[in-house]
Amino acid sequence: MNDATEHAECWGYVDSTRRQKIDNTKEVRILLLVNESASSVTARTRVLIQTALAEHHDVELAMTSRRGHASRIARGAASTGTDIVVVLGGDGTLNEAANGLAGTDCALAALPGGSTNVFARTIGMNDDPLEATKQTITAINQNSIKSVGLGEVSGRYFLFHCGNGFDAAVVKQVERRSALKRYAGHPLFMWCGFDTWLRRYDRSSPRMRIDHSAGGITDSYFTIILNTDPYTYLGSRPLSLAPSTNLESRLSVVALRSMALKTMLTLLSDLFKGKPLENDDRIHISTDLDAISVTGHMPFPYQLDGDHLGSVKELNFKWQPEIMRLVAPT
């Protein structure tokens, strides 16, 4: 039994005979899980989405009210026979719901409600939540549900990436200004990124060592473990680090071996131009990995799917195939 199975079985939900499709798409039990505090969620949007879903299916509404609440709500829905949890919120709310649903028969559907909506956009959802709702209804009617792989670290799953070092420090600064996030969005992230690089992150020496089956390095300043690509979006532009990484592939790692100004500006320029990254003396890239270890030369901050989780000395990542059911737009 692997760690992910133990993590899910502790809630009593793992079953090797999990169904892959909904038995009757005309009688689907849906929980609409809403984070009212998410950047682009409004009462009007929530009502319109609930009304649209209820025209076709049996819908209940639940609202998240605190950190970790979405996981408990989703887990409870799965245990009582709900077919799909539709999440209207940001990436953090989606991550919590995914952790509640992994290893169960209940599927996750993602509606964009945050400032960036990395996961929803990565799987092909429209960035307008009402249009995304139409996509979701169509996917449910067509039984477009698939089992997908997730990354796992320290007993928690992640949908798209884990950032170790610099970007986690940036996320921490953004979270300290959460009241501005709804209004400033991407400009806030860019400002916090510049401010963190300039005076809030130690760039005097490498911060961590990376180990995996294809090799590794000892001089990473900033490491990203990817379950999907792109890494994030700036406006409508995707920032792609490892294009072959998706929900059917295994994990990828991208590590910066320098954070000098010239290196950072060149990297950002290449990303904006859509140029593929390559292994060289500045960047370490390896793809299709089952397991990756990140060991700090000193404690380093980390974040999962945009949620800052503190500082650690070591993290061990595993890829868990087909661990969650997902409503996939057609």
Rank of each mutant, 00 (worst) to 15 (best):
F119M: 02
G100N: 08
G124T: 12
G163K: 03
V148W: 00
A169R: 04
G151S: 01
T133A: 07
A120S: 13
V118F: 05
E96G: 10
A109D: 04
A139N: 04
G100F: 00
K172C: 03
F160C: 01
L130T: 13
D127V: 12
R67K: 13
F166P: 02
A110Y: 02
V118E: 01
I73V: 14
V87W: 01
A98T: 06
N117P: 10
R66S: 15
M125R: 08
A102I: 02
V153P: 01
G76P: 11
H161K: 12
T82K: 08
T80D: 13
I137F: 09
V174M: 06
L88P: 00
L111G: 03
E131D: 12
L150H: 03
L159Y: 00
Q173C: 12
G149P: 01
S115L: 10
T93V: 11
I49E: 01
V47E: 15
H56Y: 12
I137K: 10
A168V: 06
R121L: 01
T122N: 05
Q142G: 11
A54K: 12
D91K: 06
G155A: 11
E96R: 06
L88G: 03
D91G: 07
F160Y: 07
F160A: 06
Q135K: 13
P112V: 11
I145Q: 00
L61A: 08
N164P: 02
G103P: 07
R66I: 14
R66N: 15
R121A: 03
K172V: 07
L150P: 00
T80I: 14
T80Q: 14
N141D: 14
N117I: 06
A120N: 10
L53F: 00
A109E: 02
G113M: 02
C162E: 05
D83K: 08
T93Y: 06
E55P: 04
S65E: 15
I49H: 04
G90H: 03
L101H: 05
G114R: 00
V118D: 05
F158M: 00
A74V: 10
D105A: 06
I137S: 00
L88R: 05
A52H: 07
G151V: 05
H69S: 06
V153G: 02
K172F: 10
H161D: 15
S65N: 14
K172G: 10
L108Y: 05
L108F: 04
A98E: 04
M125I: 08
A110E: 02
V153A: 07
